[in-house]
Design a protein around this nucleic acid. Structure first.
Lengths: 149, 149
DNA sequence: AAAAATGTTTTGATACTCAAAGCATTTTCG
DNA sequence: CGAAAATGCTTTGAGTATCAAAACATTTTT
């Protein structure tokens, strides 16, 4: 079962790479003062209609307390806008500023390039196989996660 | 090109799952007081002959200052042993204690299980496609890394 | 109207990170 | 040889990230 060894090494290597490279290639230039965490928060807020803190926190898997801290920094850096909801004044709605949207787009582009690079070397059948494998993996992990809850 | 979108979502989801599940399933039981970071340091030290701080720090991609802090905690928790080298008294050699080796083994087992589960649900062709895709990703990251150096 | 629930922020504590300064030891070279 | 440079590690100072629990404001329930 040598393929197991290979897959393991690949996955481990990939993990190390993704964290470091994503950081290196995203938090640069105009976005130099942005951390990886900032980027993930921006990604979770998205470019649609404003979202409240609880929803974003849940999407990120952190507490709202933690998210408040992140937002403080993002607002100060000019990526995010905070508005109290008029309908329910307990709620805080967050959304991306123009600068925040540019950063979002920058991140998306990184992802698209990454995918393009992988997909480029696969034919249609292989793409479908990859999709199926990844879905299987996702299912497995979802199951594990539910088990431990 | 809707498959690109799907693949991207799958990869992003997968990445999120793996980090949380790894944490949940490793830092438990006997290893409750261990952080993910602790685990990665233990992994980098390995079960072979003692290694010096600089080598371990480089393997982890952190500064030696950061590693010193991690080591303080790991030594206090009883996972790691620190010894000044006799040949070159500037050098500090770190190695896993018996408890540290058990933790290492526990982590390895998690990886093996994960891979086993993944591989189990793929046939030979699918395995090869997955391998090829992961290699593609690795290639992409290597290229990016070289660019930014 | 009082009590409970909800949404967010604040607080207090711990972990992780880096750059730069400091310390001890070894190597280099005049 | 002996001073200067280099090496290996730790400490320091500062910033970010994290959580649980307490505090606060507002809305909903009773």
């Amino acid at each position: 079962m040598d393929i197991n060894r290979t897959l393991n090494d690949l996955l481990v290597g990939l993990f190390r790479s993704i964290t470091t490279i994503e950081e290196q290639s995203i938090c640069t230039g105009e976005y130099r003062n942005m951390t990886t965490n900032d980027m993930h928060v921006i990604e979770a807020i998205g470019t649609g209609t404003p979202r409240n803190m609880t929803a974003v926190a849940r999407a990120l898997g952190v507490t709202t307390g933690t998210l408040t801290i992140s937002m403080n920094s993002l607002v100060k850096k000019g990526y995010v806008e905070r508005v109290r909801s008029e309908e329910d004044r307990r709620v805080v709605l967050v959304s991306l500023t123009a600068k925040g949207k540019r950063a979002f787009e920058h991140h998306e582009k990184f992802h698209r390039e990454m995918i393009r690079h992988v997909v480029e070397m696969l034919n249609e059948d292989e793409k479908r196989v990859l999709e199926k494998s990844l879905e299987g993996l996702n299912g497995f992990f979802r199951k594990m996660q539910q088990q431990s809850e």
